[in-house]
Amino acid sequence: MAQQNIRGGLDFEAPILELENKIEELRSFSQTTQVDLSDQIEKLLERCNEKKRAIFANLSPWQKVLTARHPRRPLSSDYLQLMMDDFVELFGDRSFRDDPSIVTGFGRLGGHKVCVVGHRKGKDTAEKLACYFGCSHPEGYRKALVKMQLADKFGIPIITLINTPGAYPGVGAEERGQAFIIAKNLMEMARLRVPIICTVIGEGGSGGALGIGVGNRNLMLEHSYYSVISPEGCSAILWKNTEFKERAAEILKLTAEDLLGFGIIDEIVPEPPGGAHREPVRAAQSLKEAILRHLRELEKLSGEDLVKARYQKLKRMGVYEEETAGLLSLAGSA
């Protein structure tokens, strides 16, 4: 994996990391020696910020995928901690078991009561394994639905944080109806009578992402991706191996800009220069601001109107050709 691990960073981040290291050195030198280096540090910071902007403004689709999977990228648990007040986690699907790969609970976001449902990838190895690296089982999606229906009953808006490589493909998952429970979530989320705001914060892996992704507003963090299939999976199908994942990432059109262009998402939430992992606090502020803005808009609508709006939004999704009485029109969301 040459792409990874320059001190927990990615290859293309190397020039930024170099500058960050230099700045760090100067700072500690100036602290221990009491020599004023603020001018040099200021200049270096400037250069570093320029570098960050230049590099992250021009990421290739594959580099976006790598950023979305960055080992230090903030996870749902980070955003919960940084955005929410009085968050109380609730467990279990009341049916089979508690799937830790989806976190659910209630709390306040900028004074608004909300229900949060998010994929959990896990922080340390043990947690990662327990969460199957963010790949949920049917019970995870059922847990999400049970809590969302609780929110619905008491008129509490729902915030979902999407970050999964995909729903888990395994024997148990199939035995317990992975497809059936995801389908059920799609159907039930379509008719919940509360505002739903869904944000892809990292990986938007196919049906596993969509399973908590039917909203009145769909947002994506700037360097996240959302795709029908992983670049590796696409490469394996088309080229019979995963070597063409970079090319696959290009042709799948999976970046936030692409999805905005297709009319699938409503807004791209900007990340701090150099990506959310450089400044999680600012990333969380940016996300919180965006969610609250949409929430205030949506809270004006009645339950009936929210359901209708979601229906109309989904109705527009798709790009096809429609021939009407000899006239060709291009319909759809683009």
Binding site: A183, L210, L252, F262, M317, G318
Partner: peptide, 16 residues
């Protein structure tokens, strides 16, 4: 796969 994310969204659309 050839219609990418637009295909994925048909899942939500038909379910709605």
């Amino acid at each position: 796969m050839d219609e990418g994310i637009l295909s994925l969204m048909q899942m939500a659309k038909t379910s709605a």
